[in-house]
Design a protein around this nucleic acid. Sequence first.
DNA 1: ATGGTGGGTAGCCCA
Length: 263
Amino acid sequence: MVSIATWNINSVRLRMPLVERFLAEEAPDVLCLQEIKTVDETFPHEAFEALGYTHRAVHGQKGYHGVATVSRVPLREFSRHDWQDNGEARHVGIELLGPGQGLVIENVYIPAGGDIPDRTLNAKFGQKLDFLERMTRWADAIDRPTLIVGDFNIAPLDCDVYDHKALLKVVSHTPVEVETLQRFADAHGWADLGRQFIPAPERNYSWWSYRAYWRGKDQGRRLDHMWASPDLARQATAHRVVEGPRTWDQPSDHVPLVTEFAL
DNA sequence: ATGGTGGGTAGCCCA
């Protein structure tokens, strides 16, 4: 069995105590982090190594964005894509070398897209859609079992948000984003593991805004995803959303997902 | 009724 987790940590240095608790409790073999907000030189390598996570691929950036994949099983860095061609660190791909040998894990942080869902008024929204289009062309050429995980910043299904109608004009749930993400899904035939194991319309959220969480109304959205190649999806044996960390001290606004594979 | 919270960086940008 190989277990793989993904978590938008929103500053790995600030939240290392939460990461340590999560690793102690869930013990995934591989953890894919997004929004580490630091570069390789200031990444908390020692803390991960002390817990046995001695393998890593860090694609960091000072202050913003940044992704890292850490592991207690051997891996090698496989690729780094810049689908906006603007230098932002939003992807790192690895290949497992020991248990799960040959599996490719793509760790991605899709741009949030700003506040206004109109590319003529908000360049960030256009950049988000363009990022997805370029990912789609890339995915069309994938020819080996691959798992893609991360913060997609899109909640695709009606039941992936607390109020579908109210969020139709809110970036993360607009029809044009959902349609663009669907074209990405179709390009490789990705299986959405979150919904393979927690079928619609069951409640399934991974993010609650800092602004609204205090209201206590469970106004969540499913922005984080784990998608598998068709053959790999059949080897997935369990999947869970670990909501506990959202209630821990100084939490990320996202919670981790974990999938287990019979590999 | 158009706020609210949070992180990193530097004298605001991003989410």
